[in-house]
């Protein structure tokens, strides 16, 4: 009954099922054809669907993003793979000025149904230009939806929802998650965009985490449970539109909030979550200052010790939460 596949396989399965169901769906990216993708996500899809639907593109990120916009306007549903999320910087014009704004600028008379997939995050030794977490950059832009599934189950369901979606959806996939396994139904299903998920229920403190930090937070929660600290972990899943209600409810219950994310801490997603709680009725329930554990104020370093030091790790989350709950600083 239950079947376990990897996060990468879940993506591939969703892409295959979307292409089977709708001839308008096609994939584009760099080395996604016979090479199978830099992270082997598209794998053998080119053999199933042909080169016209699994298109290897020239190394032209800006151009590809624009082609996706144009094809979406003309009736296709493009799914664009960036080889690394860092390369979004090369395509920001089309993502931010065109994909995000066209619907609005044209008075709601068009949709731009495209999906862009971004392998993100550190931990692979690829250093500063191949390890960033730029999700908050794109989540700052009205008109885009930004999702960050953390499990194979959510990945498949949210990617299928993203392909269905009439608006442009940016999908951030942590590279260290590609080989993680989880239960995934074989049939197509949808997990809604814009809904957070309570990954672990608890009563003493709420962690709102994104992507791989959900797993690190769950691990930290186990350690803290042994010390008698009961942690609730919310997997945010969608950065925009953000499910603020779920966070507010949780904080009212636990009275403490920590935000754990890999992107640079300053002006990152934790700042937005904190502000929303500070603006909400949950503020009056807080028994401690809000804690943010985010990426270091630096590029991602190459040296493996430094690389780990640049993003939150389980031990740091345990210590941060322990201090938050016990009132020590």
């Amino acid at each position: 009954m239950s079947r376990e596949i990897t996060y990468a396989q879940a993506i591939q399965e969703a892409l295959g099922q979307a292409m089977e169901a709708d001839p308008a769906v096609f994939l584009m990216g760099e080395d996604i054809g016979v090479y199978g993708g830099a992270f082997q996500v598209t794998g053998d899809l080119v053999h199933r669907f042909g080169e016209d639907r699994v298109m290897d593109a020239p190394i032209s990120e800006l151009g590809q993003a624009g082609v996706a916009v144009g094809a979406a306007l003309a009736g296709c549903k493009p799914v664009l793979e960036f080889q690394f999320s860092d390369f979004a910087t090369l395509a920001m014009e089309q993502i931010v000025n065109q994909a995000a704004k066209l619907r609005f600028m044209l008075g709601g008379k068009v949709n731009v149904p495209l999906v862009m997939r971004f392998p993100a995050g550190s931990g692979t030794g690829a250093a500063a230009q191949h390890s960033q977490s730029l999700d908050a950059w794109l989540a700052h832009v009205p008109g885009l939806k930004v999702i960050q599934p953390s499990t194979p189950y959510d990945m498949k369901g949210m990617l299928l929802a993203a392909i269905d979606d009439p608006d442009p959806v940016m999908v951030f996939e942590h590279k260290l998650l590609y080989k993680t396994k989880g239960e995934v139904p074989e049939e197509a299903y949808r997990v809604p965009i814009g809904k957070a998920h309570v990954a672990r229920e608890g009563s003493d403190v709420t962690i709102v985490a994104t992507s791989i930090m959900v797993h690190k937070s769950l691990e930290a929660a186990e350690t803290l449970a042994a010390e008698g600290i009961d942690v609730e972990v919310i997997d945010l899943r969608t950065l925009r539109p953000m499910d603020t209600a779920t966070i507010i409810e949780s904080v009212k219950k636990t009275t403490r909030l920590a935000c754990v994310y890999e992107g640079v801490k300053t002006l990152g997603i934790g700042a937005e979550i904190s502000a929303r709680i500070a603006e909400s009725e949950a503020f009056d329930y807080l028994d401690a200052p809000i804690l943010r554990l985010g990426g270091a104020e630096s590029p991602i370093p190459y040296n493996p010790v430094l690389e780990k030091a640049a993003v939150p790790q389980v031990q740091g989350i345990v210590e941060g939460l322990r201090n938050l709950v016990t009132g020590r600083t």
Partner: peptide
């Protein structure tokens, strides 16, 4: 823009329409 008559729009970004036209042609 007037998508009904195939006009995918003017563009405020110099060069912004170039890859969009290519995408429409791909479609």
């Amino acid at each position: 823009a007037d998508v009904a008559t195939g006009n995918l729009g003017a563009n405020g970004i110099v060069g912004g329409g170039l890859p969009i036209a290519v995408g429409a042609a791909l479609a």
